[in-house]
Nucleic acid binder design. Structure first.
Lengths: 155, 155
DNA sequence: TTAATTGCAAATGATTTGCACCTCC
DNA sequence: GGAGGTGCAAATCATTTGCAATTAA
């Protein structure tokens, strides 16, 4: 599999683009279909990364006949165009999030397994790599107990 | 799937244990078989995280009849016992590494896709999480160009 | 019109599991 | 001797792909 378009924070992908199009030139594919619009809307409007099955479920409210194959085909196109990013966490299938979200990292709760966005970044980590290694991007995930689960435990 | 034993740097899993057993009490399963020993040895002796197929290939030099099912069954047990950790990178199947390796992170080269260990750590990142979130561990991956590929390009 | 896109179903690949046989303790 | 392990093959699951029908431009 190609190594392109991982979910990582490139040192230059900071500009969330004007407001609409993230795609370099042209559009995602060539045409604008209801299903493609629905899929993209679901991802763009989610405050957290979604699983393919979650995207399907929500998008089907808009386009009932939508199939999983279409979800995957569009996810691939959206990834290639840079409109969305992948969020991979151990023991789970890949999740997808809008590339319009500003630079951030993730926090996964060990109790409820939910994944939260963290709008903070340790900054430049190029000093961590050995001499000769050029660091272009980084990806960070924190693990622990989220506010909800922590509150539950304290009760 | 349980969220236990992800590949992440717990704030307390720093002690690589005396020399042999990493398992809390008892052993991995209950018995010591040739295949289990071979699998563990392959992982413990590798300087980098290995794919299941790689572990199988190397371990078969010792136990020819070894099957992939046994690899997976033992990887699960080894993970549960804390003897090994998972290293998940986007677009690739999970890799496995010995938990005896000291705390470290990973660097994946975007040219050759190889994964390198980085023996450096940004340290405490608990300040990055929002109030109410308890950070227990973190996982970090750097992306860029490794020394080999960088040298090739400069040539 | 007509090439892009979709939906469904079949194909892949990775990982898991059922089961009969084997082997460590 | 018997519970724990293993090997193989079949079963799952997630993701991909073939293809005929549909649809946006």
């Amino acid at each position: 599999m190609s190594a392109a378009h991982r979910h990582s924070h490139d040192h230059e992908d900071d500009a969330p683009a004007s407001d609409e199009g993230m795609a370099p030139e042209g559009a995602i594919g060539t045409r604008g279909t209801r299903q493609r619009a629905a899929i993209r809307r679901v991802i763009d409007e989610s405050p957290r990364p979604l699983l393919p099955a979650e995207i399907l479920a929500v998008a089907q409210q808009e386009v009932p006949a939508l199939g999983m194959a279409t979800i995957y085909r569009n996810l691939k196109l959206l990834l290639e165009s840079g409109a969305i990013r992948t969020v991979e966490l151990p023991g789970a299938v890949a999740r997808y999030e809008s590339a319009r979200h500003a630079h951030h990292h993730h926090f996964q709760c060990r109790r409820c397994d939910r994944v939260f966005d963290i709008h903070a970044c340790p900054g430049d980590l190029s000093g961590l790599a050995p001499a000769g290694f050029a660091v272009e991007a980084h990806e960070l995930t924190l693990y622990g107990v989220c506010a909800d689960c922590g509150a539950d435990a304290a009760r």
